[in-house]
Design a binder for these strands. Sequence first.
DNA 1: GATGTTTTCGACTTCTGGTCGAAAACCCAG
DNA 2: CTGGGTTTTCGACCAGAAGTCGAAAACATC
Lengths: 227, 227
Amino acid sequence: MGHEVLAVVLQVRDHVLSVLLWQRARPPYEGGWALPGGALGVAEGLGPSIRRQLKQKVDVRELTHLEQLETRGAPDRHPLTRVLATAYLGLIPAGVDPLTPEDTRWHPADRLPDMAFDHAELVDSGRRRLRSKLSYTNIGFALAPPVFTLSELTDYYRAALGYEVSATNLQRVLLRRGQIQPTGASAPPGRYGGRPAALYRFRVRELEVTDAFAVLRPPGRIAPQVG
Amino acid sequence: MGHEVLAVVLQVRDHVLSVLLWQRARPPYEGGWALPGGALGVAEGLGPSIRRQLKQKVDVRELTHLEQLETRGAPDRHPLTRVLATAYLGLIPAGVDPLTPEDTRWHPADRLPDMAFDHAELVDSGRRRLRSKLSYTNIGFALAPPVFTLSELTDYYRAALGYEVSATNLQRVLLRRGQIQPTGASAPPGRYGGRPAALYRFRVRELEVTDAFAVLRPPGRIAPQVG
DNA sequence: GATGTTTTCGACTTCTGGTCGAAAACCCAG
DNA sequence: CTGGGTTTTCGACCAGAAGTCGAAAACATC
């Protein structure tokens, strides 16, 4: 009964939420697309293992976030042997384009190719996780480069959420929650001019949960961190 | 490299969030308290396995909710061999008192006894999961009996969340979200009288996510399901 | 300098949740 | 059966968060 680790690596590429896949050259599922990953080493932890495996497909230094997603153990999920799989969700900020091997491609997350094993379900699971965490955590930092304009950030949110997002609301909400702050600088205007956009950065670049959203907050209200 | 499944089974008992534990009779961690669970069968899925294992400690028909929590794979989490563990979160509604074996007891979730392996961390993980899901899902149904008064429901929420909850707010919020609905009947008043409490039930007794809480809701607003 | 483009900001509105206190509906004691 | 105690329920009011809209700001090109 083997155990493997897999990763759903997501990135907003060219306005589209995309997932990193590689094409299998051998059966089973020859020609099918699969998530990066591989067998867990005998004395290896799950987290270290997925980082090691990912190195074969992408530059892991670009990974801004990595968290465990779920473990699949259906006896027939692999047609030949019994393999449990623990899947991780990894995020890469927009803007960078990490080197990848020949067999590896980015695919739009909502139009997957022929997928091997149960990997399509895992991709969906990752998308749902990202979607929901965007609303009650600061996980947006993992989708955005260190510095960005509000239009760009709005675009990352729209791509990840799958629906239109209002830049005005996004700005107000993230500012009030203390997630983003202006750097002071501004970006050069685009091709046809327009007001130069202010540059922002995430105040904290690691996962934090927004404590709002309780049926009833604890009596001693925590003062909201406003700039 | 073995694999086991474990369950953090929670129930509000006598106003206190409690977890089901059994006391180990043999090393390692002799005398320490552990989560129910055991080795995964060779041709057994994870979900079926945890249900099978739980039967040895509690009546699984009382379980109103069961979901995967996380998988632990640190090489040294078991002192003798390598064992991966996939933990589940199980919930039992208040009011029932399932039969349990001699070695098994309910313990307050915030004052755990000497725990075996990494099981204390898993209990905390389960508590956090429950806490957060109480605010953006209807998971309260799994803590409450089929029919309940608002005072009782408030008590379950208070016990699970760890802080005081206002019955007025809870009622308004859950009604507006369409999670609960009055049955029409009312409960008999208590020992010293008092207005008889109206009885409520959860409209749906399986997990549903409340779609509120988006940075920006999708344009076509879903009409809130109000009674 | 006029026009077009993009960003930013403020004003207004709506929705959700928090607080409080009065009224309702019961019990019991005298 | 009347008054006091108890618990639940409900309405009124307020604060805060979010949605919508449009005008103003700051650039470019012609």
